[in-house]
Design a binder for these strands. Structure first.
Lengths: 221, 221
DNA sequence: TGTTAATTGTACCATCTAGTTCATTTGGTC
DNA sequence: GACCAAATGAACTAGATGGTACAATTAACA
């Protein structure tokens, strides 16, 4: 555990002389802050704790992000930009309708299962009535396109006689999201109340299949 | 707004001489605390604020509930006991399978929609990894029976050739809950991201029908 | 009516917490 | 190498916050 004797200090802290690295410091703070906000929520997270786990100091948090809410907002914005990337990576338009919906439901389920941090932060933000989403220009300009992608695939399915008509694209999205989200968001309480671990591999596989199946049954003519 | 001049003080506070009312004080504290925890979460709620909105003093909070977490746990326990009552009020066994499932899905949806406080508190508890559910004897002994009720109705449906076999009762419950829960839990973020108000009456009616329909389609042979 | 345990109010405190002040170092530029 | 804006560190502070000490009042009961 002892560092090299030549190191200025045995602490993890930067020595009295340092190298400027604005982007690195920024990213470092964001990464630690994300973990803290995800784990403790906005009110539960402690700026001092975030600072302590950082390679830099509390001073830098305020230098770059203004205040605690600014830091939180930055974390939120980064997360939503990631989602945007995830959406873009899906190419539903080139797939037949049923395959497109299967892919979308499966990917959405997997994304939530693999990114509980995302789910938790969205929960936190909803507890705060999405006040920070509302005041973020970066997020407002994000233009999440999930609904449009869904509508396109759905309408092709209807035209082909595969899907029944009259469903709103938003309803399809809500159903897919609800099944994917709930599975992660309420994992802890379900484990306590029902003694069932939805995070276990078999449970995930089964639930994933059920979610996809449910979505397809909802759509089928 | 001015009270009668004979009143000891114009404040809402109890005068220097009072009447003992342990149960009343307890309930009063619980009611205010519930609102605060629902609105601000466990870390976000302030004991001073709860005390201020109470007809009694902070002293009483600690007298009856020990500490902040004890108060939170009491609120949580009361809420889960209410759910238990709600479940008991349903009599699925006396209904034909399809009607039973329709009733269950509809009632579950309505319960969530009409009790956003419940939804928010469950979110808060999940953010805390359901640590307080885990340590509550009162909740452990509650024995929520939803799953058994569902299994009974489902098996009758299968026997009658109405439902397809091979579905786990828990999966049915999870699907019903997910659709009902998500609609309330993520209302704020969905409004921000999609500009759609899921709390609006028409949206609720449509979503309710969609949820019931989705559940029935999942079950049908 | 005297005794005592259960309740309640007021004032207080130790600690935590978000945010700041002040001083210093770095690195690009002329 | 002198100058200056950007970047960084260490120590500090005002106010908030969970929790307590102390004292008083009430109500049941012998």
């Amino acid at each position: 555990m002892s560092k090299a004797a030549s190191a200025p200090k045995a602490t993890g802290r930067r020595p009295a002389s340092w190298t400027q690295d604005p982007e690195g410091v920024r990213r470092n703070i964001l990464a630690v802050a994300k973990e803290e906000f995800v784990e403790n929520g906005l009110s539960g997270a402690r700026v001092d704790e975030i600072a302590a786990r950082t390679a830099t100091s509390k001073r830098m948090i305020y230098y770059y992000f203004g205040d605690k809410e600014g830091l939180y907002r930055a974390v939120l914005e980064e997360m939503y930009e990631r989602i945007r990337g995830f959406e873009r990576s899906l190419d539903l338009a080139s797939l037949p309708p049923v395959e497109a919906m299967t892919l979308l439901a499966g990917f959405t389920f997997d994304y939530h299962a693999e990114n509980p941090d995302f789910v938790r932060l969205v929960m936190v933000e909803n507890i705060h009535h999405a006040r920070h989403l509302a005041t973020s220009d970066r997020i407002a300009s994000l233009n999440l396109s999930a609904i449009d992608m869904i509508r396109e695939a759905y309408e092709r399915g209807v035209a082909a006689g595969l899907f029944r008509p009259g469903i709103e694209a938003l309803d399809i999205h809500l159903t897919i999201s609800a099944l994917a989200f709930y599975n992660v968001s309420n994992r802890a309480s379900i484990r306590q109340v029902f003694g069932h671990d939805m995070g276990a591999p078999e449970a995930l596989v089964r639930r994933r299949a059920a979610a996809i199946d449910t979505v397809l049954r909802m759509l089928r003519a």
